[in-house]
Design a protein around this nucleic acid. Structure first.
Length: 286
DNA sequence: TACGGTCAAGGTAGT
DNA sequence: ACTACCTTGACCGTA
């Protein structure tokens, strides 16, 4: 049985975990309001997901807006951990799996110390959210970011910067991308860190690096070491930049991935502009 | 209330 | 050297 999910927003409910504000307005009171709004919407979406049989959900990075910013004004963990633990209890009761996925600004392999520090701050924030949920199977997904003087030295630096960050590594999974880091290039980095890899069908099509999707899926799944593997599924938006997400999943892409999976028990995050609407037709498939 | 300019952050690619 | 683009549009001042 495959479990499905979608990221951050639900267009049916008009709900989102990414309500935010501009930095110049980021005073404690306003941030708390945004968090409460994100939390309310998160509850609405998770309850709806349970009704629909959707087990996966990605929490947006703006859950606590500017939580990783140096000028953040209060102890968000102390203030919000109880509320997050309640969400985690609900997720546990209903067998939901939650994840987070920071943006391209996270660049742990950067040669610039300030960039690395900001990146780690964002990852530590994300890891603390997952810790507060109190669930065993959350995932924190990141791309490898830029390539500076080559993959080898960038990868070495990334491993160096994350080594010892046990609170992050506990949740971390690395994802390949459609231009700079192929699955083959990500695998050794992930192995050195002892973290699994997310395979994404569209990234792989645009940057296969000599592997078939079936081979990529097999390699990716093997990095999960008995934990339930997680993958991404999306379709190309025709006429837009390669890699741009379409509103829905086209049947060919679905079947190609299901075929490559060869019956494996996995979780699949659907990345589509229409969010949950792209997931509903897939439920019960596999 | 609707509109349009603006928003923390890094890096790549195209001009 | 400059700009558009990217995860994900949401916010906010102004009319």
């Amino acid at each position: 049985m495959i479990r499905w999910g979608y990221p951050c927003e639900n267009v049916t409910l008009d709900a989102s975990t990414n309500h935010t504000l501009q930095l110049r307005n980021a005073r404690e009171e306003r941030i708390r309001e945004k968090f409460e709004q994100n939390l309310r919407d998160l509850w609405r979406m998770l309850e709806w997901n349970v009704q629909q049989g959707i087990a996966l959900f990605r929490i947006g990075q703006h859950l606590v807006p500017f939580a990783s910013h140096p000028s953040f004004p209060y102890d968000w963990y102390a203030a919000h951990a109880d509320a997050l633990r309640s969400v985690g209890e609900f997720a546990r009761e209903h067998g939901l799996r939650l994840s987070m996925h920071p943006s391209q600004y996270v660049n742990v392999g950067s040669p610039h110390a300030e960039v690395v520090e900001r990146s780690l701050a964002e990852l530590r924030y994300s890891a603390r959210v997952l810790e507060a949920l109190g669930l065993p199977d959350c995932v924190l997904i990141v791309h490898l970011g830029g390539v500076y003087e080559g993959h080898a030295s960038t990868g070495r630096r990334l491993v160096q910067h994350l080594r010892g960050e046990e609170q992050i590594l506990r949740w971390l999974a690395l994802e390949h991308d459609e231009r700079l880091w192929s699955l083959r290039q990500v695998l050794p980095v992930a192995e050195q860190l002892g973290v699994p890899v997310i395979v994404d069908n569209l990234h792989h099509r645009l940057n296969p690096d000599g592997l078939t999707l079936r081979e990529a899926v097999r390699l990716g799944i093997s990095t999960w070491n008995g934990r339930r593997p997680k993958l991404h599924l999306s379709s190309q938006e025709e006429g837009k930049r390669p890699g741009a997400h379409a509103g829905r999943i086209c049947p060919e892409d679905l079947h190609e991935l299901l075929d490559a999976l060869d019956g494996a028990e996995v979780d699949i995050m659907v990345e589509a502009k229409d969010k949950e609407l792209a997931v509903l037709p897939l439920l019960g498939r596999s």
